[in-house]
Design a protein around this nucleic acid. Sequence first.
DNA 1: TGCATGAATGAAAACGTTTGCAGTTTGAGT
DNA 2: ACTCAAACTGCAAACGTTTTCATTCATGCA
Lengths: 345, 345
Amino acid sequence: MSFTPRPSLVQIAEQVGVSPATVSRAFNRPELLNDATRERILATAKRLGFRPNKVGSSLRSGSTKTLGLLLPTLANPVFAACFEGAEARALEAGYSVMLATTGYDSQRERTAARSLLDHRVEGLILTVSDPSTSATLDELTASDVPFVLAYNESDSHPFVSVDNHAAAGDMVEYLMACGHRRLAMISGPLDASDRALRRLEGVRDRATRLDLPAPIHVSMPQHTAADRGRLKSLMASPKPPTALFCSNDLLATAVIAELSSLGLRVPRDLSVCGFDGMAFGALMVPSLASVHQPSFEIGSQACQELLSALGGEGSRSMRLPHRLFGGDTVASLSHQAVQPSHCHS
Amino acid sequence: MSFTPRPSLVQIAEQVGVSPATVSRAFNRPELLNDATRERILATAKRLGFRPNKVGSSLRSGSTKTLGLLLPTLANPVFAACFEGAEARALEAGYSVMLATTGYDSQRERTAARSLLDHRVEGLILTVSDPSTSATLDELTASDVPFVLAYNESDSHPFVSVDNHAAAGDMVEYLMACGHRRLAMISGPLDASDRALRRLEGVRDRATRLDLPAPIHVSMPQHTAADRGRLKSLMASPKPPTALFCSNDLLATAVIAELSSLGLRVPRDLSVCGFDGMAFGALMVPSLASVHQPSFEIGSQACQELLSALGGEGSRSMRLPHRLFGGDTVASLSHQAVQPSHCHS
DNA sequence: TGCATGAATGAAAACGTTTGCAGTTTGAGT
DNA sequence: ACTCAAACTGCAAACGTTTTCATTCATGCA
């Protein structure tokens, strides 16, 4: 039982009695070879379990066939879907993908980006907190590695996202169509997400345009968890909002759960909606009203743009269409209790 | 505006006036160098934006510092959490991770595994459909790349999982404690998930032990979606089950949604529970009863075992503790309508 | 003075590929 | 028989590191 390290090109070459170059061609430019030679090579390669070593190949050819993906967290199914979109497109193009998560932490963001660059990924898809202040992005620009932002919007860098401003506005319009006028926007920390900020502005602008009272904004300490106290005091105000617009679906879900523990039912006592359109929301009972962004496509398009940048064509920014999902967590105001019944003081 | 390709070791060496070897040591064995030399090297390296090329380094040293992760889908938050656990542990050890998803497709599984091997990942963490019949696993065994299964249980390969059989049994016991006796197990296609099979067996065995009537088993065409027809006919049987045990949380959620569209409320009309304990379930209203498996830890432990295998210590299989989460989708039978009211024919 | 010692560096050979160039063979056309 | 192209294959030099083995030089010590 001898230990055999994985064979290399030259071992195969020796076995078959040809030069390493020929073995290489058997895999990369098979059409150049004599049929018989090619078969002989492929046969012994298979027999010895040989597969060309990409490390060697990358070094020589200068191409690793690897893309980097840098996302805040996979706990949010939105990013998970984005990954799958990017992976699918990458796969088609013969690329592998190296994934790293940042946990919304700009320090980890930097080091992870560096690590990916060290591995010589040929391009990067990433979501940052705020593209206009991101040190990571500066570093990336300095290196000559092409990258495409996903979800972020930016004037100075290529990105793929939805039109957050307009999308949030559309949700406001929908809420108004349902009879709601007193709105609140609930978000995580704004400095950690330019998306949340744009959505908030979208909400405010549209409310103004529609002559709605200025929406209240409540900021939660975390992106994805609802703070009981802030929620309680929001609902305890003299004229509480009749609809809560949460800046993402995970937050919306947490808010609904927290409200429920406060004795407030959705949508009976008030309406709640989110942003993201995660697949999951449609399965909730009641189903979660949300602004759907095509995450899989955001991933695959970002990858597409990256690939064309690699092809030397330069990549264009694009806003993919969003879609309003009018789930059951938003009800017509006429069906809601005018004043939540359970929430005192 | 001149185009400068990223500099290499030797460019730095020339700049500084030392040999490439010395530059290399400045990064890997700094203590060997004269302080002045080291500083000089590091300074110009920083000035020129040099970072050691891992491709070259991997080739020479034979170590890519990269691990492979092969999972069915990230759409299931369980696997996403597993990834994050593995990534965290890998990061600590200075490894990067290359992720690929298989979509539960054994063909993609094979090609993805091969691709990872071609990239010379040093080890693999993966979840397969059925470890006892997996061709991918055979290939992996043939190559001398260490791997650890996640979620799968196996006699012949190292794995990290929960004790699916016992865990499912515990849920049965809990359901019985709530007064349920007529149970149904709902799963996806069994041949695509050994976990589902083990859970089913766990359910049956425990039911037998507890003198419950044999649970009905209904298999859905997909892992994650509920087939309306099968659900309807299940509930239309003369003595329908009072509790449905779904083989995963995503499926449970889909089932609840489908039941709702059939006019059946959970838990008022019947109880439903899942398996996985995804974070999300606890936020649902009503919260999803489930068997919680520590996915993050499964990932990180699998990675830990892999690392120790790489360290030559050989890796041990382990079953991590599960935890019963008695969510609100399971109610005491006494609180349920004995016969679902809305389901005729 | 001579010599061992240790510290700091360099020379050069790998690692596994790819690829431009050149060489050989073959067969066809004249 | 001679030329020429086409088809096939080989040579050898890269790619960017790491690492073994020497080499140099200063230092301490007898």
